[in-house]
Every structure is written in structure tokens, then in C-alpha cells.
């Protein structure tokens, strides 16, 4: 099934959830409302003609004026794929977790939290996954400033005239 057909199915099932459809560019995608992302994902996974059983990737993106979470889904049975996006405010990036739909989302969401500070509500165990627990800040945010020291160790050693 083509992405555009999947988008139509989502639109007919959840007319309020669909915010915009992007059919241009390399990757066709659909932007879903924050509050209904878990429902839409559950529908995409369980519907018999869709069966997106695999969450290939869950990524965070910082666009400086907004945050985004991108879901890449794949159906092993039907061999079709689809891209979902959720737009979030930069000040309070918060959205429902899909770890109840796909187990794989658990660690992906932890990584998105680790790098961007995106909070996934009702996630079973939302804490840092890659960085140390006592790390300050979210390094992949565009406004992240590298600290001078971590536990007394110098983080950046800048040589004179070395750029």
C-alpha cells in the first residue's frame, strides 16, 4: 500500500488527529496531533490491512522554533512503510509514549529524552540511556552549551589558534 493510501485511511478513521500531509519531497509524511499519536499508532499496528508491526525508528528533531518526533513504521507482512511526525512546543516538549504499542519504542524514547529532553508521558522507565545519569542538559538541542567540566574533568581543551 502506498503512503498516500495509508494517510487516507488515517484521515477517515481519525479526522481530527490529522494536522497536515506532506506528499512532496523524498519522503511522504503525515503530521499527527500530539494527543492522538498513541491511538493512531495502535490503529496502524492492529488494523488487518495495515499491520505496521515494526517501529523501525523513533527520532527527535530540533528545528529551533519547534521540536518534532518522527516515527518510521514498516509492515513486515505487507512490506509497506509510512512516516509519522508529531510537532511539539520547544518549551514543554511532551507527548504520549508508544511503548505500549511497540516494545521497541521504550529505548528509542529514552534516547530521544536523553538527547532532546522530550518527555514521554506514561513511559515505564524514562531516564537517560546513553549519557551518565548525572549529566546536565540535552546535548542535541540547538542551544546546548558544552560545559567546562564534568566531575572535575575538562570537557573541551582548546589550544590557542586551533579552530
Amino acid at each position: 500500500m502506498e503512503s498516500s493510501e495509508v494517510f487516507k485511511l488515517i484521515e477517515s478513521k481519525y479526522p481530527d488527529a490529522l494536522k497536515s500531509i506532506d506528499l512532496e519531497g523524498i519522503e511522504q509524511s503525515v503530521t499527527i496531533d500530539v494527543n492522538s499519536i498513541a491511538d493512531v499508532c495502535n490503529y496502524l499496528k492492529t488494523e488487518s490491512e495495515l499491520q505496521f508491526t515494526s517501529l523501525m525508528c523513533l527520532s527527535g528533531v530540533d528545528y529551533e522554533d519547534k521540536m518534532e518526533v518522527v516515527y518510521h513504521l514498516h509492515s513486515l507482512l505487507h512490506d509497506h512503510r509510512v512516516t509519522l511526525k508529531v510537532e511539539l512546543s520547544r518549551d514543554n516538549p511532551k507527548l504520549p509514549s508508544v511503548s505500549g504499542v511497540w516494545k521497541a519504542a521504550n529505548w528509542h524514547e529514552r534516547e530521544a529524552y536523553d538527547m532532546y529532553g522530550i518527555v514521554f508521558d506514561d513511559h515505564p522507565d524514562l531516564r537517560r540511556i546513553l549519557l551518565p545519569d548525572d549529566w546536565e542538559g540535552f546535548p542535541l538541542r540547538k542551544d546546548y552549551v558544552v560545559a567546562e567540566k564534568y566531575r572535575g574533568w575538562t570537557i573541551r581543551k582548546i589550544k590557542e589558534g586551533f579552530e
Binding site: 549519557l131 546535548p139 546546548y144 558544552v146 574533568w153 575538562t154 570537557i155 573541551r156 581543551k157
Partner: peptide, 8 residues
């Protein structure tokens, strides 16, 4: 230069 997580 850019490795915020790597010990120099």
C-alpha cells in the same frame, strides 16, 4: 573539537 562526551 565537538565531542562533548569524550575525554580528551
Amino acid at each position: 573539537q565537538h565531542g562533548y562526551h569524550v575525554m580528551k
